[in-house]
């Protein structure tokens, strides 16, 4: 019985994922991210035109998700960081609000059960948001390798590779050993982590929207917006902190700030457990 229930949940989640990937919110968010990636790519092509290949920075450091780029030229990365708390909700965050607004959820719950319905929404929101936020940045890596070459190993901060400052900076990256061994492997892992984090934020938006009747979709933005901005402004609110808790310091590539990993891990666990708890509570509530 349990096995059949899990199989049904997976089947319904799969069909939800296919449905959500075709919705205009997911497609538009993907287009916005690709636009930012391409704008950054064109900017870099113009900036580094005529450069000797060996004088270039490593291609992953030119990408939009690279903190190394922020130190060199921050405009597009800043756009992404500012828009991210809102964009991350867009692909799948409104799915529950939409269906509950039109009362479609009543029909679906009678077919599949309340628990299966709500948990499939949560899982599909996680997967769709993760996919929408991973693909543009993986595509970007391939684009740079083709255009610029995989050979350059420089840095946009102009540190020499043997400088103690550079070595300290690299050592402070998350997965620094992986970066030293394989910068591309490091970049792929960090982009997947970014996707995982984005998926979690998307699922969190869905979970919160399950707790109240959403009259205006703008309110679905608020929890993620406040949460992520609180992490950025934490050092302003609580005074100078030895280790940063800003979300971008954990999920962006080549981030040299000292990071409070325990806070980040606790944050991920709390968000995941909280989202599942909220969905569990909503699934037990009476529909009528």
């Amino acid at each position: 019985m349990k096995k059949r229930g899990s199989y049904m949940l997976l089947r319904i989640t799969r069909s939800q994922i296919v449905f959500l990937m075709r919705q205009k919110e997911a497609v538009l968010t993907f287009c916005v991210l690709m636009l930012l990636v391409l704008a950054n790519f064109l900017d870099n092509c113009q900036e580094f035109r005529g450069y000797d290949i060996m004088a270039l920075a490593h291609t992953t450091k030119m990408g939009l998700l690279s903190w190394n780029l922020v130190g060199y030229k921050a405009d597009l990365s800043m756009m992404l960081i500012q828009l991210y708390p809102l964009l991350v909700v867009c692909p799948a965050g409104f799915v529950l609000a939409k269906e509950r607004g039109t009362q479609e959820h009543v029909l679906m719950i009678t077919r599949m059960g309340s628990g299966t319905y709500y948990f499939s929404k949560l899982l599909s929101a996680f997967v769709v948001t993760a996919v929408v936020f991973v693909i543009p940045f993986l595509a970007e890596m391939v684009l740079y390798v083709i255009t610029f070459s995989a050979k350059p190993m420089g840095d946009l901060s102009n540190w020499s590779a043997y400088d103690s400052g550079y070595i300290d900076m690299v050592r402070s990256y998350m997965f620094s050993d992986l970066f030293i061994r394989s910068p591309y492997g490091y970049a792929v892992v960090k982009v997947l982590l970014f996707g995982f984090f984005s998926g979690l934020m998307g699922a969190f938006g869905v979970a919160v929207s399950a707790l109240y009747r959403v009259k205006f979709r703008i309110t679905v933005f608020l929890p993620t917006f406040i949460l992520l901005n609180l992490s950025v402004y934490a050092k302003v609110i609580w005074g100078e902190m030895e280790k940063s808790v800003a979300w971008y310091n954990f999920v962006m590539l080549h981030e040299e700030a000292a990071k409070n990993m325990s806070v980040f891990l606790v944050f991920l666990v709390v968000i995941a457990v909280g989202s599942m708890g909220a969905i569990g509570w909503a699934s037990r509530r009476d529909c009528l």
Binding site: A74, Q82, L86, L87, F94, F216, R217, F221
Partner: peptide, 25 residues
Amino acid sequence: GSSTGFLVVFAIQAGMLAALCTGSK
């Protein structure tokens, strides 16, 4: 709709702030 309306207006303001960063050099 309200979500898109806010997103567009916020994106315009974020874009203006981001554009100022280009002046740092």
